[in-house]
Amino acid sequence: MTQQPYDGGPYEGYDPYRQQQPHQAGQQTTPQAWPAQQGYDQSGYGQQPGYGQQPGYGQSGHDQSGYDPQLTQQWQGQTWETQVHAPVPSAEETAYLPAHGYAAPAAPHTPAATEAPAQAPAAAPATAGPAYGSATLAGNARITDAQRARLEGRSPIIEPGMQPAALTALLGLLLAGTAAVGSYALVLPLVVLQAVTAAGWFRLNGMWPARQGIALAFAGALTADVTLLVAGREHAPAAILGPLGVWILLTLVLQLRSHADPDERMYGLMATVAATALAVIATGYLGADPHATSVGAAAVAVAVLARALPLPTPASVVVALLAAAGAGIAVGGMTGLGPKGALVGAAAAGCALIGHRVASYDYPSRFVHFTAGVALPLSAAAPVVWLLGRALG
């Protein structure tokens, strides 16, 4: 743009109103000069902060309803739009394409990336957000922690640790102490053990919430307790196996009446039956000889604490069995079993370690550790305590 009057040339500006408003005779149209001090950059490649404040624009003397040919600006060369505006990206460049699997999204093509591709990573950082897979009609199944551990070469078994072991030891000592007091005193910690057993087994199998199954298993355990208290220890097998059979039949009927998927019904049936069986057989502490109950519960408490020590697995198992046998001898001497308590303690500890192992399987959660990890060692040891107590008593 020049500051001299326009006298014609090959770059004649286009005036859309030239046909509607012809010039008067003797009247010459001159472009409005924009001095550099008013904010216009005369180089044609930019603008200063004063742009848009030219004289006459928006003033009372300007007829905004029409068009004033005196203020017509004639441009020469390239305009601001062709120099300042960035190119508009295409739809392909602006479309959002989610990442598939763990692959990083491709970077959009830019001149900077073409000139120096090694200056900065083209893909977004891994912590920017989760990766998404391809869409499916059934949805993408979430990989479990156990499956991820196996794929990464890690063990899917996590042992409960010292805190659940301490709770198991506390509950075992309560069982051992109340057994020496009487049957009705033993019922209190036994009911807690049965409730935690039912809830822990369902959570260990990944079924949560499962209030109906937990309530059903716990109700079966309470029925066995009441039946045994009424019938007496001499009728312990019938008092335990009778409610167990009735509750398994009730569970089967309820699952058959369910409207869930057949596979889901079978899975729920097996979980409910197992939880009911574990909760009911814990009644064996109530039906066993009180001395055997004290020895077995104390041996389980010592064995679980020894198993939680930071030792290699084979060494901790041996230490746990030896410690349980020693605890059996000690408690047996106080209760009248004498050296026979070593056998009861070692056998109870062996069953407790099996329950401990089950509670550690398949990458369990913290809730599993504080339910199944606490209750399963004691519940698994109840049948052998009842059997050996009856045989040795």
Rank of each mutant, 00 (worst) to 15 (best):
A315N: 07
P16H: 10
Q83I: 04
D41Y: 01
Q73K: 10
D7Y: 11
G333E: 04
A118L: 02
G77Q: 03
A372V: 07
D225W: 03
V304N: 04
K340C: 15
V317G: 10
A113V: 13
A91F: 12
T272F: 03
A292M: 15
P189L: 05
V196W: 04
A323G: 06
D225F: 09
H23C: 02
L278V: 04
P16T: 13
V295C: 10
G66I: 05
S90F: 07
D41V: 04
G61V: 05
P111T: 02
P339H: 08
A372L: 11
G8R: 14
A138L: 03
L254D: 00
V385G: 02
D362Y: 12
P130S: 09
H100T: 09
A301P: 01
A118R: 04
A271N: 06
G133I: 06
Q70V: 04
L269R: 00
G182Q: 10
G177N: 03
D68K: 05
W34F: 13
Y132V: 15
Y51P: 00
G46A: 15
G332M: 04
A198Y: 04
L190F: 13
P243M: 10
A135C: 14
G139R: 04
H109Q: 05
A324M: 11
P290G: 10
Y6H: 03
V384N: 03
Q64C: 12
L244Q: 09
V191F: 12
P16E: 07
T227C: 12
A224N: 07
A236D: 07
S183C: 04
A122L: 06
N205E: 12
S65T: 14
G26P: 00
A382Y: 09
Q53R: 14
I248G: 11
R257S: 07
P5W: 03
T136D: 02
V331H: 14
G393C: 05
A274R: 04
A320V: 05
H62A: 11
S60L: 15
P89D: 13
Q4A: 13
Q19I: 05
A236E: 05
H100A: 00
G182P: 13
Q76V: 13
S134G: 07
F370D: 13
E81Q: 05
P22E: 01
G26M: 00
P89L: 13
L241R: 01
Y17S: 00
P314T: 14
A349W: 07
A239C: 09
T127C: 11
L387Q: 06
Q53C: 02
M1A: 15
P164G: 10
A112E: 00
I157D: 02
G61N: 07
G373E: 08
L311W: 01
G66R: 03
Y45F: 14
G39I: 15
V385K: 08
P105D: 00
A103T: 13
T168L: 02
A277M: 10
